[in-house]
Design a protein around this nucleic acid. Structure first.
Lengths: 144, 144
DNA sequence: CACAGTCGTAACAGAGAAGGTTGCAATAGC
DNA sequence: GCTATTGCAACCTTCTCTGTTACGACTGTG
């Protein structure tokens, strides 16, 4: 499916900011987060920009600028993050319209649409069960 | 996520073959299926080749060659098809190893791994609930 | 008020996946 | 032998994701 790492990196960033704030810091910079995630600060800023549009984080500009959580980690779920960074559907339909003169070509898209909707609903439900607080707890629970 | 249409096209092909066989035909050609799905026969052959490796269809060569179901539609689920055409995981980890000297960088991958495994298990369970018989029924149930 | 640090964003490049297309050898019924 | 079809390799185009550079915008500090 050519899965991407956007949800993973976004969760990483949120957990990082959350932990950093608990250590008494006000804001985290994209530079710091990028170092932890071993990527480029612009990648982090792009992702956090999407999370800001979704109301999960806030950013401050100027000297002493950076990112902070807009809500408690416990009130954010992976579904919130997923919807912020993954706009499209999980499964795609045909790239071109199937043959409408064929019974299967005619009925396949509505049929799969209905099936996919149910599956995506279940996926969303599962994502909603995991809060970022859960993620941070699991992160800190890693052995050694 | 840059979703692809492989599961959709594979389900389309199986439903087409199944219906065609119920109409008294022995085998279906990639040409016929490609016409219904409005794509190229080679695309169909590639996909059906993966389904054959998974034991879902059989192919015959030579004159009067083509594809037939290896099992009843009612005994095949979308999970069988999904596993045949989608090898990788749903969500990817970081492309490069995160900073192992950082608490979050160290713990994030095991944490997300565990979470993703649970979610993918649920997804698989959902896919397993839908048989290709269900798909064909829904296809034929499309209005007009 | 200048400076410095950081965000915001555009622009581009590289890698990889998906899908489409062509070509041709292999197969098997007639 | 002829013909229809699969099997498969090779190549191309398009698209997404990620990384990178560059630079303007913003704002606290001295």
């Amino acid at each position: 499916m050519s899965a991407n790492s956007r949800l993973t990196i976004a969760a990483h960033a949120l957990a990082w900011i959350g932990l950093y704030q608990r250590q008494g810091h006000e804001v985290a910079t994209s530079e710091q987060i990028a170092t932890s995630a071993n990527t480029n600060p612009v990648v982090i800023r792009r992702l956090l920009g999407e999370l800001r549009r979704a109301g999960l984080v806030e950013s401050r500009r100027g000297v002493g600028a950076g990112w902070s959580l807009a809500r408690e980690l416990g009130s954010m779920t992976l579904l919130d993050v997923y919807e912020a960074v993954e706009p499209g559907p999980l499964f795609a339909m045909h790239r071109t319209t199937p043959d409408q003169g064929c019974v299967v070509g005619y009925g396949i898209q509505p049929a799969m649409q209905g099936i996919y909707e149910g599956i995506e609903e279940t996926l969303r439900h599962e994502l909603a069960r995991v809060t970022l607080e859960n993620v941070l707890r699991d992160v800190l629970a890693a052995p050694r």
